[in-house]
Amino acid sequence: HNLTITQGKLFFHYNPKLCLSEIHKMEEVSGTKGRQERNDIALKTNGDQASCENELLKFSYIRTSFDKILLRWEPYWPPDFRDLLGFMLFYKEAPYQNVTEFDGQDACGSNSWTVVDIDPPLRSNDPKSQNHPGWLMRGLKPWTQYAIFVKTLVTFSDERRTYGAKSDIIYVQTDATNPSVPLDPISVSNSSSQIILKWKPPSDPNGNITHYLVFWERQAEDSELFELDYCLKGLKLPSRTWSPPFESEDSQKHNQSEYEDSAGECCSCPKTDSQILKELEESSFRKTFEDYLHNVVFVPRKTSSGTGAEDPRPSRKRRSLGDVGNVTVAVPTVAAFPNTSSTSVPTSPEEHRPFEKVVNKESLVISGLRHFTGYRIELQACNQDTPEERCSVAAYVSARTMPEAKADDIVGPVTHEIFENNVVHLMWQEPKEPNGLIVLYEVSYRRYGDEELHLCVSRKHFALERGCRLRGLSPGNYSVRIRATSLAGNGSWTEPTYFYVTDYLDVPSNIA
Rank of each mutant, 00 (worst) to 15 (best):
N422A: 15
L473K: 01
I209P: 02
T497L: 11
G467T: 08
W242R: 06
Y441V: 03
V327F: 11
Y259H: 06
T415N: 01
H416G: 09
G491W: 01
R286K: 07
V443I: 07
S223F: 13
P346S: 14
Q380E: 07
K357M: 13
K236W: 04
F337I: 12
V345K: 09
L437T: 00
E442L: 05
E452S: 06
G308H: 11
S392E: 00
E452D: 15
T497Q: 07
R471F: 04
S304K: 15
G436R: 15
V457N: 04
E356M: 15
Y445Q: 02
V480F: 04
S492R: 13
C231L: 01
I366S: 01
C267Y: 04
Y498K: 14
S509N: 15
S398N: 14
Y375T: 06
A263M: 13
S203F: 07
T241K: 13
S274M: 02
V443G: 01
G374A: 14
V457H: 03
W216Y: 13
Y478T: 01
G234W: 06
V443Q: 00
C231Y: 01
P338F: 13
F462W: 11
D409F: 11
H352I: 07
L487S: 10
R400H: 09
T288Y: 14
G308P: 15
E417N: 07
R313V: 10
M402S: 11
L364G: 15
D222Y: 04
E378V: 12
D229R: 06
Q256R: 07
L225I: 08
F372V: 01
S305N: 06
P354K: 13
K287N: 04
C266K: 11
D409W: 12
Y259R: 13
P245I: 15
A263T: 09
E404N: 08
V327N: 07
P349D: 12
S320F: 12
Q380P: 01
L232G: 13
P413H: 15
A309H: 04
H416Y: 12
L237R: 08
P245F: 07
S223K: 13
K317G: 06
G264I: 04
Q429T: 10
R313K: 14
V297S: 02
A512T: 01
P508V: 14
S268L: 11
T485C: 04
E417F: 10
A381Y: 01
A220S: 13
V424G: 08
R483E: 00
S479R: 06
K317R: 11
S305M: 12
E388M: 05
S248H: 07
S492N: 03
Q380I: 14
Q429C: 12
Y230I: 15
D506Y: 10
S492K: 02
L453G: 03
G476P: 00
V423Q: 14
E224W: 13
